[in-house]
Design a protein around this nucleic acid. Structure first.
Lengths: 104, 104
DNA sequence: TAAACAATTAAATAATTGTTTAATTATTAT
DNA sequence: ATAATAATTAAACAATTATTTAATTGTTTA
């Protein structure tokens, strides 16, 4: 089990997560967005999978990778612990974002 | 300017942040909590400082390090973007924490 | 001014990480 | 069966990172 922190430390891996945000994708599709080779991508996916940030689905000769959304809380939880007394301002921040969204 | 992601990827550095949560501390004080040497700690502090996660204050021959709280939002912001549609459940989660705190 | 203290920087090294090319496994289509 | 496709694993390598010991800088105290 790889550390979630090491997993999100890499720029490419965070980009992968952002790409998977919209829909599940195969390694071939993902590779098109990057400048490195398929094995490099495969290695990144293995790390994300091992950190439980993505899940893998086999369908014929393809594999589909998708986000495991629950995992975000582990990181947020760290910051919550660290700045625990600051929950109100985080809530405020989130509510501001929501208000903005509603008005656009 | 070091990446905040690389900065928090290291276990020791996250521990340092947790220690600084209660009060500002000098490198000497911090060193007692770890099994590595002063130069190693100094190097971690340099990385945290460069990622703008801690600030440094010189007082005589001591230096005091303290948390820069604002920076948490940058990481939370990533997760907010990634799981943007999930804001309500995050808000709910935070509110639950607060309710629990109030009742203990 | 010299000795002691707090902390950093420098140089060296071991371990880890991201990447490549080549080889391998598994599945589908002809 | 054979060829083609999707993806992985293996082996090798370059770059980065965490750490150590030794040397250095700056500040206080005797």
């Amino acid at each position: 089990m790889e550390s979630i922190w090491k997993a999100v430390a890499d720029d490419s891996r965070r980009e992968i997560l952002m790409l998977l945000r919209k829909r599940k994708m195969t390694p071939s599709e993902l590779t098109e967005h990057f400048h490195f080779t398929a094995p490099a991508l495969s290695s990144h996916l293995r790390i994300l999978k091992s950190a439980d940030l993505v899940t893998e689905e086999k369908l014929g000769k393809n594999r589909y990778y998708s986000l495991n959304e629950k995992k975000s809380l582990e990181i947020i939880n760290f910051f919550e612990k660290m700045w625990g007394y600051n929950l109100n301002s985080l809530k405020e921040y989130i509510e501001n974002k929501e208000r903005k969204k509603r008005h656009e």
